[in-house]
Amino acid sequence: MNIFRLAGDVCHLVAIIILLLKIWRSRSCAGISGKSQVLFAIVFTTRYLDLFTVFISPYNTIMKVVFLALSYATVYLIYMRFRNTFNSENDSFRLEFLLVPVIGLSFLENYAFTPLEILWTFSIFLESVAIMPQLFMITKTGEAESITTHYLFFLGLYRALYIANWVWRYHTEGFFDQIAVVSGVVQTIFYIDFFYLYVTKVLRGRGKMTLP
């Protein structure tokens, strides 16, 4: 464990909590892509199947349970509790455009052709594109509430910090996880234009982020 990975996990946790609290306190999921949240729940489910078979550390196990619980709670709030506030017509991204390539690639490119490894690879590739429905919704509605942009900022920052973690681990312990690194770089690239908008619009404007 290093400071970059710890900071990354904290940012990830903060992002998930920001979103969950926003939905719970505003009792509404307007402007939130339910599809992205479903994809994140799938990412955690397929990645943490080794929750009961592999023990890394108390921290690792606890964080896996927390991420699973919070992501399912978010999906529950969107599709059950506050479903009448869910505007599905804006959440129109075709998930098959993401799932088909990701499933295909995880069968082609993996470390071992075993169910657990293929599912782990699937979760890595899926995570890199899981935010697309949310970013697509923002471009479609042309705006995002500032809380939603803070959520996206921390979510993008978490994987950027993981890249620093991989650089650190490569130089200190020769660790190099090619699948995770390539996918993590792609994932972070998707956030770059959002980061630019976030800094120029939200942090200065202190209001809604309206796309040009």
Partner: peptide, 10 residues
């Protein structure tokens, strides 16, 4: 390839 390495990252 590092086969069957336990994935120690979240």
């Amino acid at each position: 390839h590092a086969l069957n390495m336990a994935h120690d990252e979240l």
